[in-house]
Nucleic acid binder design. Structure first.
Length: 686
DNA sequence: TTCGCGGTGA
């Protein structure tokens, strides 16, 4: 084929250029050839702009447009259309408004094609108001105008507006086409409006449009979003046309319904098909496995993906980063970070945020901070992630500072922001600052406090020992108090040894959350500490009768490439003997330094010596000892635990950190404890 | 000139 082409040296630069901007052209070559054209006409300019946009360089396309304008060219309809598409691809509203002005300046105000393109452009820039203005000013609207307006509303997360516009369109006598239908169905998904979705489905069936893949996948997605997995399945099974998107939609429908095996079955069939899978399908299945806790399967499929020659992209990375969090494996996280730097451009805000989260969750708040400040444009989730990171590390003041910085930089806080800030206040005993924020959130930021926020405040008051006030706060909640609120109060009753309040909170808690073993254990420990043996054993009896099993405590730590796991009294580690003799040996030094084992928290009928022994072999203590024995020159160790850290271990680890001279970081499900020089960052409130 | 899936925060 190539040999039949005339030598490119003999071609006129203009013709060579035209070939280079063609479907399989190379945009950089096109640019060089363009520069060789002595007097490029408006058509060549337009072709170059389009070529840049289609090759994924909308910014460069706009630069070409600026160049064209500087040279005093008058853009025509096609040139304006091409630059409108570039703006849409870039999503830059300021540029978009400039192009809109040019459309008016050059006399295309009432041009239908350009009007439609402008609606689409504003939609992609998430500026519904601008799109609506253009839409309203169109003297004649066709089905594309309506569809673009719909699509804009869906893009701007205004699904009700989309449905209203869709109805309006019908009243104006314009019939929807398949594109319109696949645009409006996601609005039903967003609203979880099964009725609207069914209505549109009925229209589709009546008009025989159901054999369109776009329509089918939108239908499957709509039913899945409305929790009608059976109907989603029916639509999928009755579809005659397939493509990879439709398969991805049904896979995610199954995944979000917890039906992993069905999803994986679809994926198997996709893999057996003739076409090579693209990123989308791999990412859908990897993400689905991750969300369903099938992390081994996710890793296996990630491996298969790489074997098949598809390189992980930003989305793949973002969805597998939580693997490092589960294991607390900062080493693996750094490897992935390195992969990103070597193979992909680190410019995607979502990946940045996932890295910030990973580092914070793996215990390294400093690295987390550093990545955070590298994010060029921080959105609400990015700020929230950093705020929550600081809160869980007991840095309430920093969380408050970040919150102020976020607001002054013009990013709107949402309800998650306040959960982060308030929990930060409560972990750092900034009760009054917390109360101020709590009262300001509705008034100044328009965010209605939900039960999480109330729970945070109950928690803050409880930790500060203001138990009566916390109790009043619970009673004045406009919604049913959550288990979290009562749980905070009960936890504080343990710290402040308030048995009467514990009785009240415990009763509520066992009613709301009868299946949570932790509540029984906590309540029985409080009774035990208060020497109310009978009440304590009654709670344990109740727990047995209800068949509630304690979740076994488990701690883990990474040393070199391996994650080592410990349970109570664990003897499976290769260094078991060393661990126990170390704990006995250092136990003497701890006692001399003033450590008193607090034996009454072990709610079993053992004598004092046995109790002390059973504290000494808690999983977190074994993991810490193992970490110290394998320090290898490091100055800190990181231990992770599935349950809240035990009070006596918390005390013991403070002494351990001082005696050994290391920083010990322990993550429990709620927060981080940084032990250093005999103190903990939680200031003994947790 | 308009369309469907996949990734981040409690």
């Amino acid at each position: 084929m190539l040999s039949k082409l005339p030598s490119r040296f003999g071609l006129h630069p203009n013709l060579q250029f035209l070939r280079a901007v063609g479907p399989s052209g190379d945009v950089r070559r096109a640019r060089r050839l363009f520069d060789e054209i002595p007097h490029p006409d408006i058509r060549s300019w337009t072709l170059l702009i389009t070529a840049y946009t289609k090759s994924g360089f909308p910014k460069e396309a706009l630069e070409v447009y600026d160049e064209l304008r500087e040279r005093k060219f008058h853009p025509d309809q096609l040139a304006l259309l091409s630059v409108t598409k570039a703006c849409a691809a870039l999503g830059n509203l300021i540029k978009a408004k400039g192009v809109h002005e040019d459309v008016i300046r050059y006399g295309y105000r009432s041009d239908l094609l350009l009007g439609n393109a402008l609606i689409d452009m504003y939609g992609k820039c998430k500026y519904a108001q601008g799109a609506r203005e253009v839409f309203d000013n169109l003297s004649a609207k066709d089905v594309i105008s309506w569809t673009s307006m719909n699509s804009c509303y869906v893009n701007c997360k205004l699904p009700s507006e989309a449905l209203i516009t869709f109805r309006e369109m019908g009243l104006n006598g314009v019939r929807p086409n398949p594109v319109t239908l696949s645009t409006v169905l996601p609005a039903c998904s967003g609203l979880k409006s099964l009725n609207s979705g069914r209505e549109i489905h009925a229209y589709i069936v009546r008009n025989g449009i159901h054999d369109n893949v776009y329509v089918s996948s939108a239908l499957v997605d709509m039913y899945a979003s409305c929790s009608s997995i059976k109907q989603a399945e029916t639509v999928f099974n009755s579809t005659r046309q397939f493509d990879h998107v439709l398969c991805n939609v049904i896979m995610s429908a199954y995944f979000s319904n917890g039906e992993c095996d069905k999803a994986l079955h679809i994926f198997d069939q996709l893999q057996k098909g003739r076409t090579k899978l693209n990123h989308d399908s791999w990412n859908s299945v990897i993400g689905g496995c991750m969300q369903n806790g099938r992390t081994d399967k996710a890793l296996q499929i990630l491996h298969e993906m790489q074997q098949s020659g598809v390189k992980p992209n930003n989305i793949t990375i973002t969805s597998v980063l939580p693997l490092c969090i589960d294991l607390g494996s900062i080493r693996r996280g750094k490897e992935i970070h390195g992969f990103l730097l070597r193979h992909l451009f680190l410019e995607d805000e979502t990946v940045f945020t996932a890295l910030v989260f990973m580092y914070a969750k793996c215990g390294d708040l400093e690295l987390s901070n550093r990545v955070f400040y590298m994010i060029p444009k921080k959105d609400t989730i990015a700020w929230n992630t950093m705020i929550i990171g600081n809160s869980t590390h007991g840095k309430g003041e920093e969380a408050l500072l970040l919150f102020r910085e976020m607001v002054s930089s013009g990013v709107k806080p949402n309800s998650v922001t306040f959960t982060g800030v308030l929990s930060g206040c409560s972990h750092s005993q900034l009760v009054d600052k917390g109360l101020m924020i709590f009262y300001a959130m509705r008034k100044e930021h328009g965010v209605e406090p939900d039960s999480e926020h109330y729970s945070c405040m109950v928690d803050a008051l409880s930790r500060a020992g203001r138990l009566e006030q916390a109790y009043n706060f619970i009673q004045n909640m406009p919604m049913k108090p959550s288990a979290g609120a009562w749980g905070s109060l009960l936890g504080a009753c343990r710290v402040y040894k308030n048995v009467e309040m514990a009785r009240v909170a415990g009763k509520q808690l066992l009613e709301i959350e009868p299946e949570n073993a932790g509540n029984y254990v906590l309540l029985s420990n409080i009774y035990e500490t208060a020497k109310l043996r009978e009440e304590a054993s009654e709670i344990r009896k109740l727990m047995r009768e209800r068949g509630i099993m304690k979740v076994p405590g488990c701690s883990w730590i990474q040393v070199k490439d391996k994650v080592h796991t410990f349970v109570v009294g664990d003897k499976n580690n290769a260094q078991t003997a060393e661990i126990y003799s170390f704990l006995i040996e250092v136990g003497e030094k701890m006692r001399l330094a003033g450590y008193l084992p607090c034996t009454d928290l072990v709610g079993q009928d053992l004598d004092a010596e046995e109790k002390e022994y059973s504290l000494c072999n808690h999983s977190e203590r074994l993991a810490v000892a193992f970490g110290i024995l394998n320090l290898d020159g490091a100055s800190s160790i990181r231990v992770f635990k599935n349950l809240r850290i035990c009070g006596d271990c918390h005390n013991a680890i403070k002494y351990l950190a001082k005696i050994v001279g290391v920083q010990i970081i322990v993550r429990d499900p709620l927060r981080f404890h940084h032990f250093k020089d005999g103190l903990c960052s939680c200031r003994d409130f947790w």
